[in-house]
């Protein structure tokens, strides 16, 4: 017998089927398939060069896929573009570009505008609210080169927020940011989750992955494991993902042990 609600079941915000990608004839990702739940925070985790950013770019169609596809809420990317906000890695952005903070955030509204249209007052209000949400209001007229790394990251998150998407794909939002920004991102995640939105992040810090995310996708050239944190954050999966890098792995287990100790102390 079929599940009673299998027909009314809403399609997953992001479902990847048999995705393979190559870079200069070298396979980077092979046959990756997964499906994520709605309204959760999901981390893509793996060692350097494992293809985490490539996976995100392949999903967004920014780099050509050899095989496979991604569907969003059961539909193709072109039909759902406005519902998906992409936050590129901070290093990929030209921070010397002559543009101020508010204009960057307004770019989140450009997808909704016709060619000749200028942002309306509503667009500006939405952008300004996004800046306030990320506590960047005071910087709205700054040129982006005059911001710290964390502030730059918050500007890009505000841009994604202004797009009013339902699925957020972020490439290493926590990389090299200060404590205040890390807190601001966590707050943002909570707020977005309350609104039922889904967040997928490439994440590199195993110390925080269990704390910040509900779900983990382990990647190392292929899919190692995907599932809720409590099920997949195991020594075995870490071994499979980071295998061969023993010294690193030892450090990681030690770090994990320590964070668990800290947590134990915190709860005391």
């Amino acid at each position: 017998m079929k599940q009673p609600n299998s027909n009314t079941h809403t399609p997953s915000p992001l479902s990847v089927q048999h995705l393979s990608m190559r870079y200069h004839h070298k396979p980077v990702l092979t046959d990756v398939s997964f499906e994520i739940p709605e309204g959760k925070t999901i981390a893509i985790v793996g060692p350097n060069g494992a293809g985490k950013s490539t996976l995100l770019k392949g999903i967004m169609g920014l780099e050509p896929n050899i095989e496979g596809q991604a569907s969003f809420f059961g539909e193709s990317l072109d039909k759902k573009r406005q519902a998906i906000a992409y936050v590129p890695q901070r290093e990929e952005i030209d921070w010397d570009f002559p543009i101020n903070v508010l204009d960057v955030v307004l770019m989140g509204r450009h997808g909704q505008l016709k060619l000749w249209q200028r942002p309306s007052q509503l667009d500006i209000d939405i952008a300004e609210q996004a800046l306030k949400d990320l506590k960047m209001w005071d910087f709205k007229n700054r040129q982006i080169s005059q911001l710290s790394g964390g502030q730059q990251q918050r500007v890009f998150l505000a841009r994604a927020l202004a797009q009013q998407a339902t699925l957020y794909l972020m490439d290493e939002p926590f990389a090299g940011v200060d404590v205040a920004t890390e807190q601001a991102i966590i707050e943002l995640f909570k707020e977005l989750k309350l609104q039922g939105k889904t967040i997928v992040c490439v994440h590199h810090d195993l110390n925080t992955v269990g704390e910040y995310f509900d779900w983990i996708i382990f990647i190392n050239a292929r899919l190692i494991a995907a599932g809720p944190v409590e099920e997949v954050l195991t020594k075995e999966n870490l071994n499979k993902t980071y295998g061969g890098r023993l010294s690193l792995l030892n450090d990681l287990t030690e770090q994990m042990y320590r964070t668990q100790l800290n947590k134990a102390h915190d709860t005391d």
Binding site: L62, I99, D103, H110
Partner: peptide
């Protein structure tokens, strides 16, 4: 003048522009 916003987004960040459907 007509396509100022498009040209701005593309010059600033081509992949971002692509992700917005430009």
């Amino acid at each position: 003048i007509i396509s100022f916003n498009r040209l701005k987004t593309i010059a600033f960040h081509p992949s971002l522009a692509l992700s917005l459907g430009i």
